[in-house]
Design a protein around this nucleic acid. Structure first.
Lengths: 131, 131
DNA sequence: ATTACTGTCCTAGACAGTTAGGACAGTAAG
DNA sequence: CTTACTGTCCTAACTGTCTAGGACAGTAAT
């Protein structure tokens, strides 16, 4: 679990932590049931307040990514979203639409876009293989 | 140019305007060179302060989507990003990675993802045909 | 020059988001 | 029970964001 923070980016620290843990979970760097660093030591390592890490973990828990238990720590949750597929589908479409619209303005056509998506899935699978 | 605002969503009004105009431009609902609504009438129609619309237009201009000229109004810009392809590619990859990671947590695999992307491009092309 | 449009700059108030410290509460080992 | 760890809640300060109104400046037609 290596987390890199950029304090100049303007992006909230707790969101940087959220994104990187979500990404690590998707790549298989952390597996379901595996414990995450506890809040205080991680906060010390990252040189931020413990509540900043706590907020990140709280956000991850509300998204169903991790499970925290008072006094015990946090572990990566099973990848079972409780939401109905139709809802999850809508959420993903929102993300995809954003990328598709952005692609138009960045002058990438459908074929190039699909190629990039394949590349990024490959990059993710590769990380899985390494673990 | 129909813009729908949601004041309860928590998302800043000016960003809602930005997104919807970007989307309209990508779908071909507005074409390069075509004039956009002027700031004050649009603000009145949407029942927001003129500076809120002005901020949206300012953001769109900084992204190279529109061009505003003092005293004349704003028009949709040609779709020529001044950035180098390598830079634009990096920006798009960031968007795609976000969607790919989200797909994992929403339990969509690569094949389903690619199918959704195709669907969304189709939906965009369809709008182009209607105009 | 006047009028009626247009976009832009400046400033400030209100509000939400972010981070931080203190205190509290659950867990588990000795 | 004590100790040392764990997550959680409350509150406050700070900061930046968002929205708004007043004043200014460019454009074009009469």
């Amino acid at each position: 679990m290596l987390i890199q923070l950029n304090f100049k980016s303007g992006k909230p620290v707790y969101l940087q932590i959220v994104d990187q843990i979500k990404s690590a979970a998707a790549s298989g760097a952390i597996k379901p049931g595996e414990p995450l660093p506890t809040i205080r030591p991680l906060a010390e390592e990252l040189r931020v307040n413990r509540n900043t890490v706590a907020r990140a973990y709280s956000e991850l828990e509300s998204q169903g990514i991790i499970e925290s238990r008072h006094g015990k720590g946090s572990v990566l949750a099973e990848n079972h979203s409780p939401l109905k597929k139709e809802i999850r589908r809508k959420m993903l479409i929102d993300e995809i639409d954003q990328a598709v619209v952005q692609a138009h303005h960045l002058q990438f056509d459908r074929a190039e876009f699909l190629k990039l998506v394949d590349e990024r899935f490959d990059a993710l699978e590769k990380k899985k293989g390494e673990s």
